[in-house]
Nucleic acid binder design. Structure first.
Lengths: 249, 249
DNA sequence: CGCATGCTTGAATTTAATCAACCCTAGTGG
DNA sequence: CCACTAGGGTTGATTAAATTCAAGCATGCG
């Protein structure tokens, strides 16, 4: 349904079947495993389960989340094609994972993964890099949840979704939002009503235009960046300019 | 001032001077480095700086934080004796670090650290474990910031501070809070007023008693746990019981 | 002793949550 | 093929929680 229509990714991962043959050789570990199909809403694993497998997302998307005892849900991330689930865990899964749409994954035993990684000096930096990226994303999310207004949260989210998908450089790009409003709300620490109202407000400002339930056209990218509350994005790959500060003490 | 008076830690780390001689051999990497003194408020490094060193905290404490362009500050963690700063980073520091009290640290070149780690199969699991712990803490913090009330946040924070210090098993334990109320507020995503009011309310409920500006006596531990919004703590090391869920889908 | 900083308390305001209708659309069955 | 329905989404009115603004209090330091 959603990201099934970009075969670049599949080509890329299948073109590096041997360990150490490229920057994404981590995917090669999953190469010979059978593809598993998850239908929308289906669980992959639960928080607290013994972490026996790692998963590679081939197509579709997952939400990963934690639930408080009284039912409050916090989505800590969305995963899509190319992502690997479960790198940062020890004996038990830190969170639950569910498909947000029909999704294809491959799995590998965690033991096998760890054995491969510890025996391959080529793989280790890649694992390390993924962990650090995950950590950086978690830090950004803490900033968002801690100090950003509803509008800033929604704008930040839209930008993040935009930058992670192909075609984010064109004139009036479309952001795909395969998840529901409730998912977005639980990811941004808001309610569905607030998410909805904020999107409407952004539409009224001419910053975006609704393009069906699961996508949005960005009409004023610069304004979106301004309203996201972050420092300006650098020209290309969606990272923030790190400013080598000096403003406190 | 604060944690200077528990020499156990110093004994522990100096008793394992050789690589691979114990579960905490990571500290041995810093063993021959000179001790550096930071006075309260002093910066160690800034977000965005080239990450040339890793630091080991010997005594005292640090806050690590990010700042939005308009000055809003988010403290993403507090570090104390035994912690290592900078494991989860690539080329630039993800955050700034400042001493919250007079603090002693040792530093090691990141290149040297990485060389040592990649050449030592004993060290690697330890680095990995620290990264995973950091990730788990970040996830918990996201839950706190996303969905917990002011009271739940403060209770969670007090429990976390309590469990990380020695002597948390005694009858009416004392929680040390070396940081200011502003630090706590910026860590919990609240204002100082809300933190202050919430502490007062907890005191009125008989759950805690003020014991000077920088420490608090916990008088009803169980009530504190209830109010923290988490599932019950397990008997010992302050971790949450992971419940092998099954409540959604 | 007196100031400055950090902390507490109170009143007013603001933001987002909650409660409640209603709408839209995709999918179903007649 | 079209009407119906259910779920997700939007919009509006009200409420609650935390922030903001403002004042006063303690503690620690010169």
């Amino acid at each position: 349904m959603l990201r099934a229509d970009n075969p670049q990714y599949l080509r890329e991962i299948t073109s590096s079947p041997h360990l150490g043959s490229g920057p994404d050789c981590l995917h090669a570990l999953f190469g010979r495993q059978p593809i598993e199909h998850l239908s929308a809403g289906q669980s992959l694993f639960f928080e607290g389960d013994a972490a026996r497998h790692l998963f590679e997302v081939l197509e579709g998307g997952l939400r990963i989340f934690k639930i408080l005892s009284d039912g409050r849900r916090v989505i800590t991330g969305f995963l899509q094609a190319g992502d690997i689930v479960g790198v940062s865990l020890r004996n038990h899964y830190l969170y639950s994972a569910e498909a947000i749409v029909d999704t294809k994954v491959r799995r590998i035993l965690r033991k096998a993964f760890e054995a491969e990684v510890s025996s391959s000096p080529e793989l280790r930096p890649e694992v390390f890099a993924r962990l650090c990226d995950e950590m950086a994303a978690a830090q950004d999310q803490m900033v968002l949840l801690s100090r950003k207004s509803a509008e800033e949260r929604v704008c930040t989210f839209l930008l993040k979704q935009l930058h992670r998908n192909p075609g984010h450089r064109q004139a009036n790009p479309i952001v795909e939002l395969p998840m529901t409003r409730l998912d977005i709300a639980d990811y941004l620490g808001l309610t569905i009503e607030t998410v909805s109202r904020t999107m409407t407000k952004l539409a009224n400002k001419g910053i975006l235009a609704s393009a069906g339930r699961h996508s949005v056209r960005i009409t004023r990218y610069c304004a979106l960046v301004q309203l996201s509350g972050d420092d300006e994005y650098d020209g290309d790959e969606g990272g923030l300019i790190a400013y080598g500060g000096g403003q406190r003490h």
